[in-house]
Design a protein around this nucleic acid. Sequence first.
DNA 1: CTGTTAGCGCTTTCAG
DNA 2: CTGAAAGCGCTAACAG
Lengths: 362, 362
Amino acid sequence: MTNGVDKNKKITIYDIAQELRISIATVSRALNGKEDISEKTREAVYEAAERMGYKASKTAASLSRKEKKFAALFPNLIHDYDNEVRRGIQKAVEELHDYHVSVEMITIEGKAEGYMEKLKELSYKDYDGALIIPPEGEEQLSELLRSTRLGKLSLVTMTTDLDRDVRVFGVQSNGLVAGHMAGELLATLLGPGKKVALVTGQMTSQIHKSTAKGFLDEVEAQKLTFAGTYEHYDDPKKAYETAGRLIAEHPDLDGIYLATANSVTFCSRLVELGYGGKIKIIASDVFPKMVELVRSGLVYATIFQNPFNQGRLAVQYLFEYLLGERKFEEDEILLDPQIVIRSNMELYEKKCVEVMSEDILF
Amino acid sequence: MTNGVDKNKKITIYDIAQELRISIATVSRALNGKEDISEKTREAVYEAAERMGYKASKTAASLSRKEKKFAALFPNLIHDYDNEVRRGIQKAVEELHDYHVSVEMITIEGKAEGYMEKLKELSYKDYDGALIIPPEGEEQLSELLRSTRLGKLSLVTMTTDLDRDVRVFGVQSNGLVAGHMAGELLATLLGPGKKVALVTGQMTSQIHKSTAKGFLDEVEAQKLTFAGTYEHYDDPKKAYETAGRLIAEHPDLDGIYLATANSVTFCSRLVELGYGGKIKIIASDVFPKMVELVRSGLVYATIFQNPFNQGRLAVQYLFEYLLGERKFEEDEILLDPQIVIRSNMELYEKKCVEVMSEDILF
DNA sequence: CTGTTAGCGCTTTCAG
DNA sequence: CTGAAAGCGCTAACAG
């Protein structure tokens, strides 16, 4: 024993209470940042906890704490990506079963107003947090949110960056790096000077902006020729049209980075146009249909953005945040995109699941 | 309520005890597969648990259960890879802090005999499990193990496949897929017909065998020319020599898959011989020195095998196994290898750490 | 603002 | 082989 800290004994709030000659309830309150406690006591407790080497027991806490109630808000759109996020959320709920967290999945019919209404209701119903996948036109929701008090309801965003002031944190893929990766792969596949295009979702969304930036930077660094950015909404028909337009405008195109959903529709149009093997394609994420595209060789690689984990971590982190275990100086949690080629496809294939309704897919 | 199961209420062992008119202690014993209990009671408890929809609370259990004691056995060799495994184990201990698991890190001086001796001691001292990174010549350890009773000490292996009969499970990288990935990348980089070689560790080790198999299969499928397998132990001097020999025998070589440690020594010898930019190299794992090699362009890609996670999961799974939460029909847990190129290197760089002693490295 | 007390659900002696 | 009882460390009323 060099200093007063005995490594062998586990320090509990009981020890701190004894040391300070106060009750364990007071120690608990101090440690959990509750309101009704004097600053003096709180400081004394913090000091003692630090000095004595106190480490809170999450298991004991969870045994007595009351349930944390979350809700997950999704737009009314069945989507491969969102479906994976959903599965991730469900997984997190299972994993956190012992810790008493529940998540209600809610599909919102309307757009921004629908979200706001539900959010207010949740706040009123004493929910602790909400996980949001925003509707089209998220700026509007951001706007509404900024002018509304939601009490103690903590907001976490996924696949978006709703205004930072209104949320606790956001979980999304590292778009910047994903863009660079796609650029580097195309450069490797094609060599310098070749002509590439970017096909992406709404550029009003931050995630698409950063993906585009990463890709453009890499294209420039690798001295590829840039044909342009082709933006389209998450709509298969638009994807189909966009493919046609892209080829019409650049019949000599060598490569494409498909940084959006609806890759499948897009690719099948390319095949129709007779560009099957001629253009090197880097796509995004792994869904059952994408597996086939990579296997067939039409798509050389796809960049997996792990939507499943996005949902899972959103729940987990929100929970930890609410317990004061997590700080978030960085309010963006970025997941690592991964390169999937034919030979490691099987590893990702088993991680994704057929989407319930296939209407929207093809 | 369609059947007797009320989804709203949490079923506890108390409920089961009441239903069966026995004590909660008996229920607990039955559920945990303790010895001193009649088969009849056990079955009744299982049946009731199933019927009533019982889900055990790990948190409550961990609060009263006594400490699980593990040990991790490493050879006396400071090594980038092992160092990461160590860090992973430490991480797991932190994560499992609340669950009362401790892991003692032990460096074994001798070889197989040294391991056996320590293992017997651990068994005698009532340890619950041991995590093993075997010494050179693991077959010998396997041999010894097969003829020795270690009581209730559960064995988990890492970076090896010690005899399956003597261990609970093993955690290692998916060598087969890693080999395929390296082959596919080289094929993409070089095109068909080009000449490639495999540089690997001891082929007596299962992990190296499966990596080699994956690579060879892919080389054949992609119609590359195979120059041969160059085997060497984890010794920088050998790596240096091997590089020289490889080039002497195949001056027209186009690509190499470095499926072993000591890539750094190997590569620097290649540069000395003037083969710096001429040969495409796929390496393994990410360590600080490897980061430089990829950044410089000497190595095109490296296949990350996540040794950190290997250590972390080994502890976690062993713990879950001991609690009966995990079954392991498959006794090999395979981690997904990941492709790291220049543009996503930063994501992996921050996950590895400078090794303590650098002697062995270069 | 603080203390008392009753659990949370389970494992583990200790006594039969 | 089984039961009774004492906690594990913490939170949440409730009562000052």
